[in-house]
Design a protein around this nucleic acid. Structure first.
Lengths: 191, 191
DNA sequence: GCTGATTTGTTGTTTATCCAACACATTTAA
DNA sequence: TTAAATGTGTTGGATAAACAACAAATCAGC
């Protein structure tokens, strides 16, 4: 999966940069953070930053992806079934993640964040579907993953719009059965 | 004072190593910590460790020196007088420092730790005396600093021996006037 | 004792990082 | 508007760190 031979300096430096970015994000808004701030906090040269990232938006992208991936604990999900329990669990992770982000004041970058969340969801949903139904058409599974990711993300937006009145778990539970029945029991498609 | 041109990589790596060492010291005893453990925690190569430190004892030495120096807030002391207030303050720092060390289980290295503490005390006392009495003989001031450092350290040993019954402040206050009167008012020596 | 495994230091070569420039864009204040 | 200051992104040459391989010391169990 991941390259086994990657220079430790690269891993260390990426970690230093990302940690510095997370640290700064808790103090300032994203728009007020400069590359210089980050490299100073990370104790690395500014040129080194550009060796690893295109620009600060690329860093935002990759940092959030990684944090989310860790939260989603990808290995766990990839080895379990895409059932009601998992969908509820994923929804809870997403709502938690967005709550932690809003504390860190990334206003104005909702689109980027939304894209990152959807991409990650799509990625793990697709992996799970592939394992669950290896015989099915890949394009169909891919599209299913896309729709599920948009659906889950949309639900989280709706949940926030309602002002966090109910628990994420109870909120998503009302809709999940409709989704699951399409995935779980209606298995005669392409079968 | 310090070199103005030192490669940032050196500072960063030293910090990574020392932080890793402090981190590990909170989990294991010193005797159970290997160079490999430290370099793994610090995310650096083992060879790099030997580029910066002679061995693990050298690291212990330099780490404790630095931590103590930060605690003593050297700049502050160097710009103030060597009076009763300062001596009490220094004594409190030392007792606090030793308490934090005993939590970290460095048993068997009391001698090394004692030496480090005395060397640091001697260093700042000498600097203060030099400023306070620039006209006096340097060797005499140096010896005074040596005796003061041993005295303060010995007092901390005695304080621990009594089982932390009294506050460090009240403990040292009983003896300080005798010390101070020799430094402060009896200024006709060499004068 | 012995054997295998682990740790300790060392060395030559490769590579990621540093640095000092540089041109260009953006902001700030006069 | 202009000028000074600050931030962005790039480059070539210098250097610290990584790596692999090594001998030697230390420690474990037999």
């Amino acid at each position: 999966m991941t390259q086994s031979k990657v220079d430790p300096r690269i891993l260390r430096t990426r970690k230093l940069i990302m940690d510095a970015f997370i640290e700064l994000s808790e103090k300032k808004e994203f728009k007020d953070i400069t590359v210089k701030d980050i490299t100073a906090e990370a104790m690395i040269n500014r040129a080194t930053f550009y060796y690893h990232f295109e620009d600060i938006y690329d860093l935002l992208d990759k940092s959030l992806s990684e944090v989310l991936l860790v939260n989603l604990n990808c290995d766990t999900y990839q080895n379990s079934e895409l059932n009601e329990e998992v969908l509820i669990s994923v929804f809870k992770v997403i709502t938690n993640f967005q709550r932690s982000l809003s504390n860190r004041c990334h206003r104005g970058y909702e689109d980027t964040i939304a894209r990152i969340i959807r991409e990650q969801l799509e990625f793990i949903f697709y992996k799970m579907l592939l394992k669950q139904r290896p015989a099915d058409d890949e394009q169909a599974l891919k599209l299913t993953a896309v729709m599920l990711s948009w659906g889950i993300y949309g639900a989280s937006v709706e949940w926030r719009r309602k002002g966090d009145e109910v628990q994420p778990e109870t909120f998503i539970k009302s809709a999940v059965p409709y989704i699951i029945s399409g995935i779980d029991s209606n298995s005669k498609i392409n079968g």
